[in-house]
């Protein structure tokens, strides 16, 4: 008995965002289907993976993670090169030291580090601030200026500081991460506000504030599914690719951090922690994530292998 295959006729698609500069530019988004349903639409760009680099040595990362970056953790440039060696599509430089509780590094110094990292690697750069909205606006403004024309992805822009960051992106030709706390309406509102400043839709990437597996992953999961459906049904204010800044969430969970000895009933840490990161990412890939920021190189490898599989077209 022949089954009439059910295909949705989507009227629209996710905007395609280009990051970095030729010949090393990376493209994300552009999907005209729900994730991996190749039988009803296009998914021309693979979901991309960035590895995280800090501008100061992390003190609370589990040993399992620091081991992978032994010797480079106090040198962002060397660290970034290591990430590229591991095969990252992009490097995500997080300017943790700018936080007033850390080193309160000046915007100028931050910009200098960002430039050094950008010059040292040939993959495009994501630059994140320290999470203090006011400071981030100042820091990212300087970074944008120092790396003018390099087409970075800058964030996080929030409802509080988006104006400065958007303006900096416009002037210096960068892209913005619009970040909102777990709410599709707030997400859409920020996109509207940014677009009303005339930054084009294909220069915006959505950060819905993802959680890790077991820590509210379902909220962002559903927001991302709704965002994708919005994009495909013609809502221009939701038609941007989504970034999942996951590593930081995963590596603070006890499931990833507890060693085999600490939690024998949960099995081997190496296996468990990697799976925690990869399964979180795979779930978000199903919900529509286009860009993933992970921490462990093994997670990168496994997630990439999974994506390769899911990207193989299926037709009926």
């Amino acid at each position: 008995m022949a089954v009439t295959i059910a295909k949705e006729r989507w009227t629209s698609k996710v905007a395609e965002v280009v990051l970095g500069t030729e010949p090393n530019a990376v493209k994300i988004g552009g999907e005209s289907t729900l994730p991996f349903l190749h039988f009803e639409g296009e998914m021309n760009n693979y979901p991309k993976v960035a590895l995280e680099v800090w501008d100061m040595e992390p003190t609370e990362w589990p040993e399992m993670l620091t081991r992978a970056y032994a010797g480079v953790l106090n040198d962002p440039v060397a660290w970034a090169k290591k990430c590229v060696e591991y095969g990252a599509d992009m490097v995500c430089l997080t300017l943790v030291s700018a936080h007033p509780d850390n080193k309160d590094t000046s915007p100028e110094e931050c910009a200098r580090v960002a430039k050094a990292v950008a010059d040292a690697v040939n993959v495009p750069l994501i630059v994140l601030g320290c999470g203090v909205e006011e400071k981030d606006a100042q820091v990212l403004e300087k970074v944008a200026e120092a790396l003018s024309g390099r087409n970075l992805l800058l964030g996080l822009a929030t409802a509080e500081n988006y104006k400065t960051i958007t303006a900096a992106c416009m002037v210096h030709g960068h892209n913005i991460i619009a970040s909102t706390p777990l709410d599709i309406n707030l997400e859409k509102q920020l996109n509207i506000l940014i677009m009303e400043m005339n930054l084009a839709a294909d220069r915006i990437v959505i950060d819905p504030s993802v959680g890790a597996l077991g820590y509210g992953i379902e909220y962002a999961y559903s927001i991302m599914e709704r965002t994708r459906i919005g994009a495909l049904t013609g809502d221009k204010m939701l038609a941007m690719p989504v970034i999942c800044i996951l590593g930081q969430e995963v590596w603070k969970t006890k499931e990833a951090k507890n060693t085999t000895e600490e939690a024998p009933e949960w099995g081997n840490q190496e296996r468990r922690a990697i799976l925690w990161e990869v399964v979180s990412a795979a779930a978000f890939a199903q919900a529509g994530g286009s860009l993933f920021v992970l921490r462990h190189p093994e997670s990168l490898k496994q997630f990439r292998a999974h994506i390769e599989k899911m990207m193989r077209p299926v037709t009926y």
Partner: peptide, 15 residues
């Protein structure tokens, strides 16, 4: 709640 948050915008999140 979903409707409420989408309405916390002038005029509305869904234009």
């Amino acid at each position: 709640m979903d409707e409420f948050v989408s309405a916390l915008f002038l005029p509305h999140t869904d234009l």
